[in-house]
């Protein structure tokens, strides 16, 4: 009513409230929730799965096979539960961040530093995830896109049916890759663990100062756990020797053969590394191609 009256009088400066303004509370709460589930939950599982490559590329491949046993439904699951929530949380997060002036110089408190870092790491996370998904996954698995856009730009390097070996090669593509991954992972993990702390205030889970101190401790523990997990996968992938990669690839191909026979995995030539014996355009003669490619 008030707004309408205001408009009649012709004294409007700001336009009628936009969708974002009218639903500010709901959107902020959804943004907060999305940071925990599904995005945060995905990150925890993702980093844990990736860390397994440090101990055993075989376990890593087994976990990836599990995920990819979804076959043709996988892209739907990825977009609904991973990509769209990340895009929503990320885009809305950037929107929240713009227009706010950090004042850390004037008020150099610990909590203000966390606040400022939460925004800074959000921006880093945005850039990192945008590039990282392109680098490993490619964003789209359309044949044209993968062949003519992603591959020439060092994207879509990950081949799910040769998980460990292709991820290792992707990580070793340049010394910059592990550097960028380290920055990206530390930023995302800080963002997530500090986000966990603020989320507890947002939703009123930890209220008293004592409870908040304990929650901060918990957040720090979460940070350490997932930072270590992330570093483990980077080190595991970056330090894999060429011989080891070839060995791992042969093992992956063997596992694939068995799983296709049992029907647990749907054949899909695009999910093999170009160096795999099952790569498109190669006949599946294991011994022969192994000798040719093994470096």
């Amino acid at each position: 009513m008030r707004r309408q009256a205001r408009r009649w009088k012709g004294s409007v400066v700001s336009s009628a409230p936009s969708f974002l303004e009218r639903h500010e509370f709901l959107l902020r709460r959804l943004h907060s929730l999305a940071g925990l589930v599904p995005v945060g939950a995905y990150m925890m599982v993702h980093l844990a799965v990736n860390a397994s490559v440090f101990g055993s590329p075989r376990i890593f491949q087994r976990l990836v096979f599990h995920i990819h046993s979804l076959g043709p439904v996988l892209p739907l699951v990825e977009w609904t539960f991973i990509f769209l929530p990340i895009i929503f949380h990320g885009a809305f997060g950037l929107f929240i961040t713009t227009g706010v002036k950090p004042n850390i110089e004037a008020y150099p408190y610990n909590s203000n530093l966390r606040y400022t870092l939460q925004r800074a790491t959000g921006v880093i996370a945005f850039l990192f995830i945008f590039w990282h998904v392109f680098h490993m996954h490619g964003w789209f698995h359309n044949h044209f896109w993968v062949t003519y856009v992603a591959h020439p730009l060092m994207g879509a390097e990950f081949s799910p049916y040769n998980a460990g070996s292709s991820a290792a090669l992707a990580m070793q593509a340049s010394f910059l890759v592990p550097v960028l991954y380290t920055i990206g992972i530390l930023a995302v993990v800080f963002h997530f663990s500090n986000g966990l702390f603020t989320l507890g205030i947002t939703w009123g889970i930890w209220i008293s100062p004592t409870a908040q101190e304990r929650a901060k401790l918990l957040a720090n523990v979460v940070f350490v756990i997932f930072a270590v997990a992330g570093m483990a996968s980077i080190v595991g992938l970056y330090s894999m020797s060429q011989e080891k990669i070839a060995e791992v690839r042969a093992e992956e191909d063997e596992a694939y053969k068995v799983l296709v026979e049992t029907g647990d995995i749907v054949p899909n030539p695009e999910k093999h590394s170009p160096l795999s014996e099952y790569a498109p355009g190669k006949h599946s003669d294991a011994e022969e191609s192994d000798v040719e490619e093994g470096e």
């Binding site: 008020y107 408190y109 203000n112 939460q118 009123g204």
Partner: peptide
């Protein structure tokens, strides 16, 4: 409303009356 708060917790640090503002924010957030 309260959703705009970004949990920087500067408010509680500068309040001359030492009012537990972030506690109020948590309680009202819930």
């Amino acid at each position: 409303g309260i959703q705009v708060c970004g949990n920087a917790q500067n408010c509680v640090a500068v309040c001359p009356k030492k009012i537990p503002l972030t506690m109020s924010i948590g309680r009202i957030g819930r």
